[in-house]
Simulated assay, not measured.
Amino acid sequence: MDGAARSRDQWADELVRVSAEYEGRPGDIARGRELARRFLARVRSAQGRPVPDRAVDLVQLVVSELLTNACKYAPGPSVVDLELAEDRVEVTVWDSDPVLPVAGAPDAGRIGRHGLEIVMAVCQSFEVHREPVGKRMRAAVTLADDMSGRAVGHAS
Rank of each mutant, 00 (worst) to 15 (best):
C123M: 05
P106I: 00
T92K: 12
G115Q: 00
L100S: 03
F126G: 02
I118Q: 00
P106M: 04
R113Q: 11
P98W: 04
S125F: 01
P106C: 02
L116Y: 06
E90P: 14
E117D: 12
T92E: 14
E86P: 02
E83L: 11
L100W: 15
V99H: 03
V79P: 02
D95L: 14
G115W: 06
M120A: 01
T92H: 05
A108H: 07
D87G: 01
A103T: 11
G109N: 04
V122F: 01
L116C: 00
R113V: 14
S78C: 13
C123W: 00
R113P: 01
C123A: 05
R88M: 06
V99N: 04
V99E: 14
L116M: 10
V122Q: 00
P101C: 07
S78I: 14
S96P: 00
L116S: 03
V119I: 04
G112I: 04
H114Y: 02
P106G: 10
G109Y: 00
P98C: 08
E83G: 15
G104V: 05
E86H: 12
W94H: 07
V119P: 09
P106R: 02
P106V: 09
E83T: 15
V93R: 12
Q124H: 08
V99T: 09
V93G: 13
W94E: 06
A108N: 02
P98E: 08
L100P: 07
C123F: 04
A85V: 15
G109M: 06
A121E: 01
S78F: 13
A105G: 10
G115I: 10
L84D: 10
E83S: 15
E117G: 11
V119N: 08
D81V: 15
V122M: 01
M120V: 03
L100K: 14
G112R: 07
P77T: 11
L116W: 03
G109A: 00
P98Y: 11
A103S: 09
V122H: 00
L82R: 01
R88K: 09
P77R: 09
F126Q: 10
G112K: 02
P101M: 09
V99W: 13
G112V: 04
D81Y: 06
S96Q: 12
E83V: 13
G104D: 09
D81H: 12
E90S: 14
V79D: 01
D95R: 09
E86R: 14
V93L: 15
G109D: 02
G115S: 13
V99Q: 15
S78R: 13
V99G: 07
R110S: 00
A85C: 07
T92G: 12
L100H: 09
P77Y: 11
A103Q: 03
R110A: 05
R110E: 03
D95T: 13
M120C: 02
V91R: 14
I111W: 07
C123H: 01
A105M: 03
